[in-house]
């Protein structure tokens, strides 16, 4: 079969004590499960804006997402594996995105497609969330405004690599985040403010208009 072990030394979240007692059977089983999962990820396209059009182009005839086992769009989050957040996420949509992520069963992953989803992009204003990683955990960020289909495919391949390196014994991967009871946020407020400092363009308007 040619089943060769993959190096697992660059697993970021692996607990070193958990893997010590693992048998050869467990690692083989991991490999088989991950191989199956990586090849049949069902995407949940959370398409909001321009990136959704490029996502559709990726799924259409020329770029053919079906080559990666992803042609089965799961528009219901309850049957989905990968949330592909394609497009900008305004504050009004933030609780919806959070709810959809909560509705997805484990194991689940998230691809943040495009600059707006990843960082707010060019929309540094009162209405747009400055990166969906302040609401839900993100596995792969795909840059671009919007990313070309090739870019999205590369991101999907990266996610498949990541899936192939998971270990069932590491249950921390499957932990759901709970919000901080005081602030209701998932990451500290200071971190959010720091991440969304204005960058580059002016956000001030003077009387002269300059």
């Amino acid at each position: 079969m040619g089943l060769t072990a993959r190096p697992s030394d660059n697993l970021a979240r692996q607990d070193p004590s958990a893997g010590a007692g693992e048998s050869w059977v467990a690692t083989r089983l991991d490999f088989l499960v991950n191989w199956g999962r990586a090849g049949s990820l069902w995407p949940m396209p959370f398409g909001t804006a321009c990136c959704a059009i490029e996502f559709m182009a990726t799924a259409a005839s020329r770029f053919d997402l079906a080559r990666f086992g992803m042609e089965r769009m799961s528009f219901s989050p309850r049957q989905a594996d990968v949330l592909i957040c394609a497009g900008r996420v305004p504050f009004k949509l933030a609780p919806v995105l959070r709810r959809i992520w909560q509705q997805m069963p484990q194991p689940k992953w998230c691809i943040s497609m495009g600059a707006c989803a990843s960082s707010g992009g060019m929309f540094d204003n009162y209405a747009v969330v400055q990166g969906i990683d302040t609401i839900i955990p993100v596995d792969v960020y795909v840059p671009g405004c919007p990313p070309r289909p090739e870019g999205l495919l590369y991101g999907i391949l990266m996610l498949q690599e990541k899936v192939k390196r998971e270990r069932m014994s590491d249950t921390s991967l499957r932990n759901e985040m709970d919000p901080d009871p005081k602030s209701g946020l998932y990451i500290p407020a200071q971190a959010i403010d720091e991440l969304s400092e204005p960058f580059g363009n002016s956000v001030h308007q003077t009387r002269s208009g300059l």
Partner: peptide, 15 residues
């Protein structure tokens, strides 16, 4: 342009 509240506060209210 960026609203009256801090980003974290905006996000807290939205969520």
């Amino acid at each position: 342009l960026r609203g009256r509240f801090s980003r974290a506060e905006q996000l807290r209210q939205a969520l």
